[in-house]
Design a protein around this nucleic acid. Structure first.
Lengths: 203, 203
DNA sequence: ATTATATATGACACAGTGTCATTTGTCAAC
DNA sequence: GTTGACAAATGACACTGTGTCATATATAAT
């Protein structure tokens, strides 16, 4: 978390820093992000940065927390709207992410963030600590709504299904952000969702 | 590719360098790999490294090419053995990777390599250039053997299925390498394969 | 023995990180 | 309006690491 010092900063200055950071995070993957670039773009002294944040991960987590906060609200609405149907929720999330990810302001940032999620990060339930409690709670609630329509016999199996769905969906979001033809991209995604739903084996 | 200079080196010296590199690649993800550590461990001068390789990616690609060469042979055998059945091939690959990945000599290296594959790397067919021609050819040949048993109407749909299968499988390999209980890990993987095969929706 | 060619080396210029002693700003109390 | 105390800002510094290049050394060829 940022220090009190940063949180107390006048809005303008805070925004200047966050904007410079956003730009840098959009430029290269996190590991190549240069604090030097951020402080230069923000017009603050190098020392100030370390007065505000522990390191670049600290700043990154803060920015992501803000972004995810917005998405969580949306997610609740979607679950409501789809009455818990998890596949439809995935499709709604996909559409939502593509919509905001295609905005000129966001496109590079989105590609960096989503494209650079690692395989080991896709194992949500194996490392719960990293999930927001809200989202975790939300997902557990979903179990009840899905246990009768899905082929699942336990919460553990539901977790497997969720992880698969999210992994596949995330992959498709990245692909779509890179495609020229977004209709074709969406079609591919929907096909994959059908495969997940009904299986790839011929009856 | 390494330079002629490196390739012409006496076997011992070459091995010394490759061994030091392997150790460093097993320590941290590629972006954090330090050439300094490699040259120090290998006992060569910093300048020599740059006489042999363009940069650390060059060295990394070379090592991976060697490793993948071995796996390609195996893959051919598996396809033969399973008569092309793609899901069974996935299970065979899983078992093979876990077997060699659990060897003390390999475990850290494997975790680094597999765990750090990025979402954007999972879109094989969107960036063909990065695939070995051999593997690509192999996969195209598989289409014929699977088109009657899978729910696919075109090579494009087959590609979707393959990408999904590989993404899911790779995730499970990473998970398994981190699990204590490898029977449970394998069970989870098999369950996911069943889901992919017959779908998650209740009939 | 001499020359040409291949290989090896580490000092150097650069780029970036995180720290810390010092400076600057703010504001309440007198 | 001066003082003192606390908060915030600063950039020089010591580090760690990169990639290059002129020079030194080894090997081979004539």
């Amino acid at each position: 978390m940022p220090t009190k010092t940063f949180l107390n900063l006048p809005k303008d200055k805070k925004n200047k820093v966050l904007k410079a950071a956003y730009k840098e995070f959009a430029r290269v993957p996190l590991e190549k992000v240069s604090i030097k670039n951020i402080v230069e773009n923000a017009g603050i002294a190098r020392g100030s940065f370390y007065q505000y944040f522990e390191d670049k991960e600290d700043l990154f987590d803060y920015i992501m927390k803000i972004k995810i906060g917005n998405i969580e609200k949306k997610l609740n609405e979607m679950i409501e709207k789809e009455n818990g149907n998890i596949i439809n929720v995935c499709i709604d999330i996909y559409d939502f992410l593509i919509k905001i990810g295609k905005r000129r302001k966001n496109d590079k940032f989105f590609k960096q963030i989503y494209g650079n999620v690692k395989t080991s990060d896709n194992l949500m339930f194996t490392k719960k600590e990293e999930m927001s409690d809200n989202i975790l709670q939300m997902l557990y609630n979903l179990y009840d709504k899905n246990k009768d329509i899905l082929n699942i016999n336990s919460e553990d199996e539901f977790k497997l299904v969720l992880e698969m769905l999210f992994t596949i969906s995330r992959r498709r979001v990245v692909a779509s952000l890179n495609y020229k033809d977004s209709d074709k991209a969406r079609e591919d995604f929907l096909k994959e969702m059908e495969y997940i739903k009904y299986g790839i084996a011929k009856k």
